[in-house]
Design a protein around this nucleic acid. Structure first.
Length: 922
RNA sequence: GCCCAGGUGGCGGAAUUGGUAGACGCGCUGGACUCAAAAUCCAGUGUCCUCAACAGACGUGCGGGUUCGAUUCCCGCCCUGGGUACCA
């Protein structure tokens, strides 16, 4: 019987479905293991061959863990809210829910064909009201909590109010927006509206006027991670800064915990680094400068207090409040002109023209607290309003940006560090934190590091500043002016936001007639009829961003049908957190930060029992496309083969990779491919048309998309699974090239044939030979090692070698083959299931135990093992590694076992390799 | 600029972490089977020494170093990919 993958795969996929083979439940008798894939956004294009790479790897690991006796949670769902469905709705009027539903069905169909062991009973969809109920619920909790810096955790806002009523806010150390100090009496005398307004400064989910990334083309604001190089990540539209009243999440409060938590995680170093940089902790000091002839105190942040004697000017961010306070009447006009210039520049221009130095003098002078010198205060866009205090002390000798500014505006450059030889400041500043202080009064002669510490304490002693840690991480802007997202469970009374009662959740997304903003510029929800509470209060018109629904989905999988809690304590305490998480590295500064934040918040509330959501994380690489090209001679419909193209003037044209095989074009198929090419002519080489090729992103426009359905149709799902793993290391980016798939397919047929004799299934009950046992155990050891280390790519050669060796031994013994069927089951579950049943088992191979390899079958006795290979003979010999060749030669010759191998032969060369093995070339 | 990862045959990639570099697969060449093709099987395939065998030399981006021994460790460069970017 030939290996009929179609029949086998269909048969077992429906068997698994009918028997609910992969359904899991809490089972305290077994250890748990939670394997999670980043759930996909179901796009209209369907899956290409690159998408399932991570799913296949996680499926292999899940199946392996199951065979090792773990109770494995391996769920899948859909990140269903997103812009493409909404854009499509705007164009066609079709409700995004319909598009989304259709795309999910298509994804599901494609996924099912690959034979994954997902427990689909636990599927979640972020747009399902029963799911987003808990997204809204979490938001309400964030609104009702504040972050206490003393305890470093979230605490109920009701306790904060009690404190305000008792003693005001002087003693409160909160992660909060700028808030004036007030007493208990002052608090009590405030109106409800005033109190609510103040509380917003403390809440973890808060409404505030903030500078946001506004994307006019998308008609919405975006979070920092959704903007790259001044353009929106989705769509690539320009983004401008705009002050708007928006919801934000106080992610920055958790900056230190997000940073510290990384140490406990098994993530790649590069991913941890990305997060560390994004959080951007920097230790320094706030220092206050008096201003000459003014009551204003200019507070700045610096990480280099040691250079305070080198300050020759101060710089304010254009958006800083100090600008208004410090601009003198004489300079008012110049400053106004400059602010106008800055306002007109887009974020992109500001970023791309970093080298252009601009600025204006305010007219004011600050007093250096250490030298009492008056130093001019300038304004420049190189200082950012959102970081530190929005103002800096400039030390041009030791900061390259200050240096450029000083050069441009002819400001003094005072060196205060000497690194042994005189430093050269004619071309650039000296930024290194190394050397001895000079020109620096109190700290002359100190090492830089000493000086930093000294000035920091000195500043505190004098009461003009204090040590401070700044983080680059900003709060996450949480409003989107969009329709297709979770509605906020928020209504407004006297312009102040209030949360809906939890019993009213979910607040379902209303129907609207058009998916565009209203005529008055309100978000699409402004079109919803009766969008108000029973009492008649208006409901929030913004919706939540994409990361809202993906922040806690891993928790929902633990207990997906619970309508009383996000996750029950029982389910949470059993499944705890994700043991292995697989997904792309592009989520490093988005989802993976938000999710950790969200989880930490719920941890503070006692809702979840683990502070970190994802213990181990692997970033699978991207599968790139391999594009093919044809070369059209300019002005003709004649195409010249790649090898001859240099003789003509040609245009390179992408050609569909599906009509090219081994870079050879199917010219007939090409003529049919597009009407333009119907009467194409070809200049061939050696009778063939050879295409050019390049590695590019897999995309429709480059005609290099390979669909997994086509591969499965031709070779089967098991071959696809094996080949995707065989392609290269999981974490590497690698091009897809269908050419090589034959080798893997051949292997599966060979493996199948081990169980076949004269066209029928045939297995022998004979006892195995030592050699066969060795082949088996060698393979098992390798497979186990590979899976544990996620090097699935090297397992496949091990299976191939094993199969070849057993084939040449004509081995069809049960004791050898049965363990191999189990070992291959994680990789190729369909063929394994079929063979497992043919071997006489009634239950699924999933229920089997992974066979344990044993060292005793692998050991080689000394001298039992002269195997000849590549003209060499290998001996095992007790010799120190440092032995000379003469000593080894003598030892080899002296050993009686060696005699029969060396008889009459001359020893040409000997190489000692480890494990006391000597290679002898004869 | 700064941080991280990587550079191995015609191609994808191995090398169990300092021990026979190039496993395995693709491609290519030759052969067997076949009327033929497909499929299958066998052999060869890093480079150079004008062909082959024997032998040899050179070979893991480049230049040094440590070591009996380096793709692996150290120092200095070059290139590719990713992250980040006036973050004071």
């Amino acid at each position: 019987m030939e290996y009929n993958f179609k029949e086998i795969e269909q048969k077992w996929q429906s068997y698994w479905k009918e028997n609910q083979t992969y359904k899991v439940d809490v089972d305290p008798s077994k250890p748990k293991y939670y394997v999670l894939d980043m759930f996909p956004y179901p796009s209209g294009a369907g899956l290409h061959v690159g998408h399932p790479l991570g799913y296949i790897a996680s499926d292999i690991y899940s199946r392996y863990k199951r065979l090792k006796g773990f109770n494995v949670l391996h769920p899948m769902g859909f990140d269903a809210y997103g812009l493409p469905a909404e854009q499509y709705a705007i164009q066609t009027g079709q409700h995004p829910a319909i598009t989304t539903e259709k795309n999910i069905a298509r994804y599901r169909e494609q996924l099912d064909k690959i034979g994954f062991s997902f427990d689909w009973d636990r599927e979640v969809r972020t747009c399902d009201p029963q799911y987003y109920k808990w997204t809204q619920w979490a938001f309400i909790q964030m609104f009702n909590h504040w972050f206490n810096k003393k305890t470093q955790k979230a605490e109920p806002i009701s306790q904060l109010i009690a404190t305000f009523e008792k003693e005001g806010n002087l003693q409160v150390e909160a992660a909060c927006s700028d808030t004036p100090v007030f007493t208990a009496e002052e608090w009590k005398s405030k109106t409800e509206k005033e109190q609510q307004s103040l509380l917003l400064n403390y809440r973890i989910a808060y409404l505030a006027d903030t500078m946001v990334n506004w994307c006019p083309q998308l008609g919405t604001v975006l979070a920092n991670d959704e903007v790259k190089d001044g353009l929106s990540v989705r769509g690539g539209f320009p983004v401008v800064q705009k002050n708007m009243r928006q919801w934000s999440l106080r992610v920055s409060a958790y900056a230190q915990r997000l940073l510290d938590g990384l140490d406990s995680l098994e993530w790649s170093d590069s991913l941890k680094d990305i997060q560390r940089n994004w959080i951007g902790r920097s230790q320094g000091a706030d220092v206050t400068f008096e201003v000459k002839d003014s009551k204003v105190q200019l507070r700045i942040f610096t990480t280099r207090p040691d250079t305070i004697y080198g300050v020759s000017f101060m710089v304010l961010a254009p958006e800083s409040d100090y600008v208004r306070e410090l601009t003198t009447p004489e300079q008012a006009k110049a400053v106004a002109e400059y602010l106008d210039y800055v306002a007109k520049r887009t974020e992109r221009e500001r970023q791309s023209e970093v080298k252009t130095v601009t600025g204006v003098f305010t007219g004011s002078y600050a007093i250096n607290p250490f030298t009492q010198e008056a130093i001019p205060v300038w304004i420049s866009e190189y200082v950012l309003a959102g970081y530190g205090t929005g103002a800096i002390m400039a030390v041009p000798a030791h900061d390259s940006r200050d240096y450029a500014f000083a050069r441009k505006f002819n400001l003094p450059i005072i060196p205060v560090i000497d690194n042994g030889q005189p430093i050269d400041l004619s071309e650039s500043s000296y930024d290194a934190k190394e050397g001895k202080m000079i020109n620096s009064g109190l700290i002359n002669g100190m090492e830089v590091k000493e000086a930093i510490a000294f000035i920091a304490t000195e500043v505190e002693k004098r009461g003009i500043g204090k040590s401070k840690i700044n983080y680059r991480l900003r709060d996450a802007i949480f409003s989107r002016q969009r329709y297709w997202g979770e509605p906020f469970p928020v209504y407004y009374k006297e312009e102040m936001p209030y949360m809906m009662d939890e019993s009213k959740l979910p607040l379902e997304l209303p129907e609207i007639d058009k998916y565009l903003p209203t005529e008055t510029g309100e978000p699409p929800l402004g079109r919803a009829l009766n969008w108000k509470t029973e009492e008649g209060y208006p409901i929030e018109l913004n919706t939540m961003p994409g990361f809202a629904g993906s922040s806690a989905y891993y928790l929902r999988y633990m207990d997906p049908h619970n309508d009383r809690a996000l996750v029950s304590p029982e389910a949470d305490h059993y499944w705890r957190n994700v043991d292995l998480y697989l997904g792309g590295a592009e989520h490093a500064t988005g989802h993976l930060i938000y999710s950790r934040f969200w989880n930490m918040f719920l941890y503070d509330l006692g809702v979840v029992c683990e502070p970190e959501p994802f213990k181990k994380l692997i970033n699978q690489g991207m599968i790139q496309g391999r594009s093919n090209f044809v070369y059209r001679i300019v002005g003709t419909n004649t195409f010249v083969s790649a090898g001859l193209k240099d003789r003509y003037e040609t245009t390179e044209i992408h050609v569909d990779v599906n009509i090219v095989r081994n870079d050879q074009l199917d010219t007939e198929a090409f003529k049919k491919w597009m009407p333009d090419f119907a009467n194409a002519e070809f200049i061939l080489e050696d009778g063939k048309y050879i295409c050019g090729w390049a590695i590019e992103k897999m995309s429709k426009s480059m005609f290099n998309v390979v669909n997994p359905d086509d591969i499965i149709h031709e070779f089967g799902a098991d071959t696809l699974r094996l080949y995707e793993m065989f392609l290269g290391p999981l974490e590497a980016h690698k091009p897809w090239d269908t050419q090589g798939i034959d080798g893997v397919y051949k292997f599966l047929r060979k493996f199948w044939r081990l169980f076949q004799q004269e066209e029928t299934f045939s297995i022998s009950e004979e006892a195995p030979s030592r050699e066969e046992l060795k082949i088996l155990h060698k393979t098992l050891k390798k497979i186990e090692y590979d899976i544990e280390n996620f090097s699935f790519n090297t397992s496949i050669p091990a299976f191939m070698i094993c199969t070849n060796e057993l084939t040449s031994l004509k081995c069809n013994k049960r004791v050898i083959l049965e363990p191999l069927v189990i070992a291959i089951a994680p990789y190729a579950p369909h063929i394994a299931e079929e063979l497992w049943h043919q071997l006489g088992h009634d239950s699924s191979v999933t229920m089997a135990n992974f066979p344990q390899w044993e060292e005793k079958y692998l050991s080689e006795d000394a001298f039992e093992y002269p195997v000849s290979f590549n003209g060499k003979v290998r001996f095992k010999l007790n010799m120190p590694l440092t032995a000379t060749s003469a000593e080894i030669e003598a030892a080899v010759k002296a050993a009686p076992e060696a005699a029969k191998w060396l008889e009459g032969k001359e020893i040409r060369k000997m190489i000692i390799v480890p494990k006391k093995i000597v290679n002898v070339v004869i």
